[in-house]
Amino acid sequence: MLATTASCLLVAASLLLSSGVSAHAGEADVIQVRSTQASDGTWRFDVTVRHADDGWAHYADSFEILAPDKSVLGTRVLLHPHVTEQPFTRSIDGVVIPRDIRQVIVRAHDKVHGYGGEEQTVELPLD
């Protein structure tokens, strides 16, 4: 009886893993960032995020632009899951970055794990 129960659990786990359904979507990763400075001196960031969104309870829900000291310079809230669009790119405009900052860190957040996925450090070109 115990062997049968263990076998059933093993088969169920194998089916779940092979079905492509994520029982554990993991953390949100920033995989690419493009930065552009506007004529008014503010910055636009086009951020590509990868996360195995699996619905409203677990999806990448924001990303941040951070100064080297980890202070937040800008936040883009993501209002819905991107289950069928992975990876996805969204933008944030109007980010004010002090002139003495030459690099920023971009990180993503998800509803279950918070922060902790892959971050990107972006070098900002000199004026």
Rank of each mutant, 00 (worst) to 15 (best):
1 M>N: 10
2 L>M: 11
4 T>V: 12
5 T>V: 13
6 A>D: 09
8 C>S: 14
10 L>N: 09
11 V>P: 00
11 V>A: 05
12 A>W: 11
14 S>H: 10
15 L>S: 10
16 L>T: 13
18 S>H: 03
25 A>F: 03
26 G>P: 04
26 G>K: 04
26 G>A: 05
28 A>N: 01
29 D>F: 02
31 I>C: 01
31 I>S: 02
31 I>D: 01
32 Q>D: 13
32 Q>P: 07
33 V>M: 01
34 R>S: 15
35 S>I: 01
35 S>F: 02
38 A>H: 14
38 A>E: 05
39 S>P: 00
40 D>T: 00
40 D>Q: 01
41 G>E: 03
41 G>M: 05
42 T>C: 04
46 D>P: 09
47 V>M: 09
47 V>P: 11
47 V>W: 10
48 T>K: 10
52 A>K: 14
53 D>R: 07
53 D>T: 05
55 G>C: 07
60 A>K: 05
60 A>D: 02
62 S>F: 11
62 S>H: 10
63 F>Q: 00
64 E>G: 01
65 I>Y: 04
66 L>P: 01
67 A>F: 04
70 K>S: 11
73 L>W: 01
73 L>V: 06
74 G>A: 00
75 T>Y: 03
77 V>L: 15
77 V>W: 15
78 L>P: 03
78 L>C: 04
80 H>F: 14
82 H>Q: 12
83 V>W: 12
84 T>R: 14
84 T>M: 14
86 Q>P: 09
88 F>Y: 13
90 R>T: 08
99 R>V: 10
100 D>P: 05
101 I>R: 07
101 I>M: 03
102 R>Y: 12
102 R>L: 15
102 R>V: 09
103 Q>D: 13
104 V>D: 08
107 R>P: 11
107 R>Q: 13
108 A>H: 06
109 H>V: 02
109 H>A: 05
114 G>L: 07
116 G>A: 10
116 G>Q: 07
117 G>I: 02
119 E>G: 01
120 Q>Y: 10
120 Q>A: 15
121 T>L: 03
121 T>I: 10
122 V>F: 04
126 L>Y: 11
127 D>F: 13
